[in-house]
């Protein structure tokens, strides 16, 4: 079977993020870039399915720049070194909203014809948590979001997914092709091994200018606009209290939480 796994380039979660003074975005100098951690989990899940189902193929897909300082090829190479078979980069320097991302992915799905698309449940940069759901809608495919366990039927015609929902677990079964978005506890992504890194040198990393997809009908116009970005208010210094009574009193009168 063929699996598409999505990759977004995001700032390392360990990086301390600074907002530009004009509020138009974040300062990207000296930021270390990584694969969106949820996408890394998605790649791992795709690779595990590939290892179980003989003759499977994992293709990574991403949308973004192909040159420094925004070279998504770096992240795609990491995914190839983890074990994916090939990668496709839709090249654009524009910041895209989830709907445009979903439309572009839908175009790729038309040509690649995967049986399954595995995505991170959200990207840790803007936390939209929307592209997977939108892609399912555009394709008319079933979706299972926030997956904590994925199992394919023996004939690979359907998938059973356990989702983490408020207060418990929900189990869904749906026919393939379909969309799965990965939650944190789905798996623990592997490291790229040295043999994997060397093998990745020979793997294909295909670049498609976004214009090509536009010619094929992709609509890149967005519906939302970034108005302003601002850092959260600085945390105030804590206060030491003398007694539990005083704590309760302050929680009531000052913090107004009880």
């Amino acid at each position: 079977m063929k699996i598409l796994a999505t990759v977004k380039r995001v700032p390392d979660p360990e990086t301390s993020i600074k907002v530009k003074p004009d509020g138009s975005g974040i300062v990207t100098d000296n930021v270390k870039w990584v694969i969106n951690p949820f996408d890394e989990i998605a790649i791992e899940e795709a690779l595990r399915i590939k290892e179980k189902v003989a003759g499977s193929e994992v293709v990574l897909v991403s949308i973004g720049g192909n040159a420094a300082p925004n070279d998504v090829k770096e992240q795609l190479r990491t995914g190839l070194a983890m074990g994916a078979d090939g990668a496709i980069l839709v090249v654009t320097d524009a910041a895209l909203e989830p709907l445009v991302v979903a439309r572009a992915l839908a175009k790729l799905v038309e040509t690649e014809k995967p049986d399954l698309v595995v995505m991170g449940k959200q990207a840790i940069d803007d936390d939209s948590n929307a592209a997977g759901q939108m892609l399912a809608e555009l394709l008319g495919w079933p979706q299972a979001t926030f997956a904590s366990k994925v199992e394919l039927s023996g004939d690979q015609k359907s998938a059973t997914v356990i989702r983490e929902v408020d207060g418990g677990l929900e189990t869904l079964r749906f026919p393939l092709p379909g969309i799965v978005t990965a939650d944190l506890r789905l798996n623990e992504p592997r490291y790229a091994s040295l043999p994997g890194i060397m093998k990745a040198r020979k793997k294909e990393l295909k670049e498609i200018p976004i214009g090509d997809l536009e010619k094929a009908g992709l609509d890149v116009s967005g519906r939302t606009q970034l108005v302003k970005m601002e850092p959260p208010p600085k945390r105030q210094a804590g206060k030491l209290v003398e007694s539990v009574d005083q704590l309760v009193e302050l929680l009531h009168t000052e913090a107004k939480v009880i």
Partner: peptide, 15 residues
């Protein structure tokens, strides 16, 4: 090379 960089990331992560 990109391979050196990937290898560095792998060792760093292991460490």
């Amino acid at each position: 090379t990109p391979e050196h960089e990937l290898f560095r990331q792998t060792v760093r992560k292991f460490v």
